[in-house]
């Protein structure tokens, strides 16, 4: 893997790294907003992949960019709803700690 010739693989590995970071954040942060931030990381990693695939024509046309746009739209919407859910959580449990919201545990 040439270091100075930037290709698809570089972006994909970077995205994988960011994705792993997102997963780590999601699984370690007890703050609901923190989990939301982890999700954003994951989504961005995915978006990097899409745009890289588009750039290097792994997919035809500009499908990659369009997918990325939809991901951004959905991410924004998700953030809005998620924040609202976080506020409800806070209202009901008087805390933002997601570990407290385990009423459905086995």
């Amino acid at each position: 893997m040439p270091l100075l010739e930037i290709g698809l693989m570089h972006y994909l590995i970077l995205a994988a790294a960011v994705f792993s970071c997102g997963v780590f954040v999601m699984s370690t942060k007890r703050n609901a907003i923190g989990i939301l931030i982890g999700i954003e990381l994951v989504l961005n990693a995915v978006n990097i992949n899409f745009v890289a695939f588009d750039r290097y024509q792994v997919v035809g046309g500009c499908d990659g960019q369009i997918s990325a746009v939809f991901v951004i739209v959905i991410a924004a919407a998700e953030a809005a709803v998620a924040v609202a859910i976080c506020m409800n959580l806070y209202k009901n449990l008087n805390t933002i700690d997601v570990d407290r919201g385990d009423s459905l545990h086995g």
Binding site: I33, L36, I37, N47, I72, A76, A82, L89, Y90
Partner: peptide, 20 residues
Amino acid sequence: QLIVYAGGTLILLVFGVMLT
């Protein structure tokens, strides 16, 4: 990316943090 995330989502998150 800059407008939506930096200008929108991130602000939203910060508001969420502040409110909760």
